[in-house]
Design a protein around this nucleic acid. Sequence first.
DNA 1: CACGAGACCTGTTCGC
DNA 2: TGCGAACAGGTCTCGT
Length: 274
Amino acid sequence: MPELPEVETIAQRLRGGDDRPSIIGSSISGISTEWPRHFEDPPYEIFRERIQGQTILDVGRRGKFLVIPNTQATMLIHLRMSGDLHLELSGAPAGRFDRTIFQLDNRHELRFSDARKFGRIYLLKEPEKVLGKLGPEPLAPDFSAEQLKDMLAVKKRQIKPLLLDQSFIAGIGNIYADESLHRARIHPRTISNTLSESQVAALHQAIRDSLTLGIQNNGATIDWVYQGGEYQNQFRVVQRAGEPCPVCGETIERIVVGQRGTYICPGCQPEVSI
DNA sequence: CACGAGACCTGTTCGC
DNA sequence: TGCGAACAGGTCTCGT
């Protein structure tokens, strides 16, 4: 489910306000899991001991990680493909895929729902050990087209898989990569260091626009996994194979790039022959 | 360094 | 209706 806008939406929801309870300020009284492999570092039994009694101080986001500092350390949660986090009253009926549950001292539970069990949880004194491997935040005010140009220039990779590389730039996933490349009129197989300066500027703008729109729409709901987002209604190419491109009218195609399903408009995004 | 294949998991949807 | 194949918003590791 989650790319940057979806994770940002979840972080905002967990911060509460607006009739919604917050996890900030509550303490974790216990945890339970049916999938101990959620716990990457430290392993479950140690995690369980260390998290006991910790007070949650904040909920933030870095790339696709939820960043949850507490009294003694920082918890990181990565939702991978099918994860979701939601706050429920203790005793509320369990969801089908609720696999790890944090009991809070405010009569609520933080539930990690994860159909495919790919999600991972960390509790680290030094979260930079994990977060430090991430590339820049695409929505940071100081992330400039100039910086992107320099980053692209030193790589010789297909642009789409490069955008999906979290050490290159953080937070972009399959959907926002496709939407961004369509907005920027760039074919996903274009080699990064062959992009013109104007293409790079367009890509920079397109990435920020699509991510911002995603956040403004509470993310995208595509299938049964994640609910509550509306951005899917504004997709230009994703999941629209066979439909006319909203920009030029050509028929949208689904291809495969870097082993990922990829949507393009062949009119707007001509493949550059090398 | 760059890339493809295969793993990790389970659920839904598609095609015959 | 039934059944296997294909597909899914992510990332890691291995081999070339």
